[in-house]
Computed example of a mutant assay.
Amino acid sequence: MPDKHLSSRFDTELARVSTKLLEMGGLVESQIACVLEALKSFDLALIEHVGDAERRLNLMEIEIDDEVVNVIARRQPAASDLRLLMATLKCAANLERVGDEARKIAKRTRRVAVDAGAWKLNIAEIKTSGEMATQMLRRALNAFARMDATAAAQIVRDDEAIDAEFRAGVVKLVTSMKEDPRTVRIGLDYLLIAKSIERIGDHATNIAESVVYVVRGTDIRHEHRKQRGHEIYGK
Rank of each mutant, 00 (worst) to 15 (best):
D163Y: 06
A164G: 07
K226W: 13
N206T: 00
G217K: 00
M60E: 07
D180I: 09
V35T: 12
E223C: 15
G26K: 09
R103F: 15
V215E: 03
G201N: 04
V211W: 00
I200K: 14
T19A: 06
V156Y: 02
H230L: 14
D11I: 00
A45F: 13
K104P: 12
E223F: 14
C91P: 02
L95H: 02
G169R: 13
A149D: 08
A79L: 09
D3M: 15
Y233F: 14
S129T: 10
R167W: 09
L192T: 03
K104T: 15
E37V: 12
M132L: 07
E179D: 06
T128H: 12
Q154N: 06
V174P: 02
M24I: 04
A102K: 08
L22W: 00
L85N: 08
H230V: 15
A133F: 08
K127N: 12
E48D: 11
D219C: 04
K104R: 15
N142F: 09
L191M: 07
Y213L: 00
V171C: 13
R167S: 14
L95E: 11
L121V: 06
Q227P: 07
G217D: 05
T183Y: 12
T218H: 05
D52L: 10
D115G: 01
R97K: 09
D202M: 02
V68M: 00
A79C: 02
I220Y: 07
G25W: 04
G117H: 14
P77H: 04
E37Q: 10
I200Q: 05
T218A: 09
I47L: 12
M136T: 03
L137G: 01
H5S: 12
H224V: 15
L14E: 00
L27F: 11
N58F: 01
V17A: 08
R83L: 08
D43R: 10
G26I: 03
A78M: 04
L14H: 01
L137K: 06
A204F: 00
V50F: 11
R221V: 03
L36W: 05
A118S: 12
G229I: 11
T128V: 10
A15P: 01
I200Y: 01
I105C: 13
I62P: 00
M147R: 09
A38Q: 07
R74F: 01
I47P: 09
V71H: 00
A140I: 06
R111L: 14
S18G: 04
A143V: 11
K20P: 00
V170W: 14
H5N: 12
N58V: 04
A106T: 14
I162K: 02
A15S: 06
I123S: 08
S30W: 13
R103G: 15
G99A: 14
I232F: 07
R221L: 07
S210N: 04
R185Y: 04
I123L: 11
A204T: 04
G25R: 06
E101A: 13
V112F: 11
I126Q: 08
G234N: 07
I64R: 01
E67F: 01
Y233G: 13
M1Y: 05
L44M: 13
D180N: 14
A118H: 09
L46K: 15
F42R: 12
R55F: 10
K20L: 05
V211L: 04
D66C: 04
D189F: 02
